[in-house]
Amino acid sequence: MSGAGAEGRRTGADAPRPGAETSENAERDELYAQLRAYEGRAAATAGRGKDPVNEPMIRHWCEAMGDTSPAYRGPDAVAPPTMLQAWTMGGLSGHTDGTGRSAAYDEMFALLDGAGYTSVVATDCEQEYPRPLRPGDRITFGTVIESVSPRKTTKLGTGYFVTTRTDVHADGERAGTHRFRILKYRPAQRNKDAEPARRPRPVINRDNAGFWAGVAEHRLLIQRCTDCATLRLPWLPGCNACGGAEWDTVEACGEGTVFSHVVMHHPSFPAFAPDGEGGPYAVALVELAEGVRIVSNVIGVPYDKVRVGMPVQLEFLRTDPDLELPVFRASEGG
């Protein structure tokens, strides 16, 4: 099939979509409508297997699978039926002219790639084997795009399921049907080289500016009411014991114990995880020696080793060039 007619239609799909993040719903509907137009169209016509069914490829397959069945060896050998799709694959050099892939299929993929759905994972494979394949059989096939799903969100990312059906013939005889479903998706995690995940910035205002000024000097400052001497943390405009508006500060000595804690598993938030990979992390309520409590991270132990009552010591952690935070290192066991 000539690609000339396809080129004109592809340009729109290849154009960048700067509005993708701001008008997600509109984009979804529009893209889905475009994708659905490909349902029923050929994904491959008059495809030809690059190699006839042959013993070396059968042997390599059986070696990889650990399949020692005698049915796949010797003068009466057949090919393992589950190898069906392998005979239609483009391989390293891809589907070049004459081996199948249609312009419609390429166009649809270009649409998805252009919209950021660049990754592929196969999810379903349904095969029927009406006739065994034997060495020497010449493979031909045709593929139709059966369906495209609405946009779905999966653990891997957001994307569209595309289902194709391939009819495989051997020397002109129907030999197999192969229904295949892939997810064409936008990866959920970005390339690590792009930019490391950053923690959210604290909101600093006139009520808590003194706290953050202390952190900048590596001092954890607790507010103290000058009327009734009650300590308070986090910082507040007034005393929650007597209502007094005047205050001064006391510097925490840095000793504390874990009063309570939770482990965050989901959603993954790479900036908070010690490994930066988005794994689980512990959030603790630490009771300071002075008697007030602060929400922070416990470092120096795996998330699942944080315990209530565990002694901890204040430290200041620079999470990125613009942010330093008070955190608590588990002091148990040095």
Binding site: S69, T82, T123, E126, E128
Partner: peptide
């Protein structure tokens, strides 16, 4: 998925023997 498909096929034919013939294999990952 093709390897998974091949392993599923092998599992069945290992069990039922070389004269058993796969007719349909449908898998979801």
């Amino acid at each position: 998925i093709l390897t998974t498909n091949g392993l599923v096929g092998r599992y069945l034919t290992d069990h039922f023997g070389p004269t058993a013939v796969l007719r349909k294999v449908a898998i979801r990952l």
